[in-house]
Each structure stands twice: as structure tokens, then as C-alpha cells.
């Protein structure tokens, strides 16, 4: 990804910029595990198992799901589930999105590039893994577009 983070929502832009400066793999890993530890699963008031196929993230090997719930203030709150208990990367990605873009107006979230995954997780991430994590970003974007279009 280029260093053009200006098009991203501010908190996400800041986070992506922080990750872009990391060159040490262990440091990146620590930060990602820190986010994975903060992952919060979708509450039962929003969704219960079996989760609907409509919320399933394509290509994510960790069986991730994303929900978007409009808020009274006009924002769009996102919720996530990761069914693979060992899907730490998916949990980290979900926690990052939860903390940086959840609650923003849908119109601000329609063009988040999947490429942020490679900046956050490092360019050495495997193609399959990268696709799965980008799938989470794409699902957020897809849901935001639905709401942005009304």
C-alpha cells in the first residue's frame, strides 16, 4: 500500500500508519496478538448461531461473520464473529475494524481498500490468509455500501 492514508477514516488511517512503520516481525506479531485479545464476539442481541450465510465472509478460513447495525446517531455499528477459536488473525482484524471504524456513517466506509491488510499484517502474509482477511474488510465495505445507498 502507498502511504496515502488520507482517504481512510482518521482512526483507521492512524492505525495503518503505525503498522506501516513496523519492520520487526516480532513487534508486529505482538501488536496483532494484543488486538486479537481484545476481540469481542457479536452479542446474542444481534445474532445467534447458526449465523446466517448472508453475514458470512467469503474466503476467510476462520469462518468469520460480519453484521452492520444502524445506530440512532446515523452511524453504522459493526459486529463480528470468528468461529475458529484459533483464528487469531481474523480476530485481530475484526478488533481493529471494531475499534477504528465501527459507528461511523456508512458513507465514510464504502471505499476502504482491502490492501490495508497487507500493511497491517505485513507483506509476507500468504495469499490465502491475505484473501481471507481482505474478505472481512470487503464484507464491511459491502454492508456499508448497502446502507449508504439506503
Amino acid at each position: 500500500m502507498t502511504d496515502d492514508y488520507n482517504s481512510l477514516p482518521p482512526k483507521l488511517a492512524e492505525l495503518v500508519a503505525d503498522f506501516s512503520t513496523i519492520t520487526d516481525r516480532a513487534e508486529r506479531t505482538e501488536m496483532l496478538i494484543h488486538y486479537a485479545d481484545q476481540f469481542q464476539e457479536v452479542p446474542a442481541s444481534v445474532a445467534t448461531r447458526p449465523f446466517p450465510e448472508a453475514n458470512h465472509v467469503d474466503y476467510c478460513e476462520s469462518e468469520a461473520y460480519v453484521w452492520a447495525v444502524p445506530q440512532n446517531d446515523g452511524g453504522l455499528r459493526f459486529y463480528f464473529a470468528v468461529e475458529n477459536p484459533q483464528g487469531l488473525s481474523a480476530k485481530a482484524m475484526a478488533a481493529i475494524l471494531d475499534q477504528t471504524i465501527s459507528g461511523l456513517p456508512a458513507a465514510e466506509l464504502t471505499a476502504i481498500p482491502g490492501e490495508i491488510v497487507r500493511t497491517i499484517f505485513g507483506r509476507e502474509i500468504s495469499m490465502g490468509k491475505g484473501q481471507g482477511l481482505m474478505g472481512i474488510v470487503m464484507k464491511v465495505q459491502h454492508l456499508a455500501r448497502q446502507y449508504a445507498q439506503g
Partner: peptide, 23 residues
């Protein structure tokens, strides 16, 4: 040896080393 590179550093079987398929 994992698909998810975050797993080994987050905790592993005592004495285990990691072999990463990519690197």
C-alpha cells in the same frame, strides 16, 4: 506449523519450535 502466524507466539506446547511454511 500453522496457517495463522499469530498462534505460535501467542502460546505453544512447551519446548516446541515453529516452522513457518512461508519463510
Amino acid at each position: 506449523s500453522n496457517e495463522d502466524p499469530l498462534l505460535y507466539p501467542s502460546g505453544h506446547i512447551p519446548g516446541a519450535v515453529e516452522v513457518d511454511w512461508t519463510t
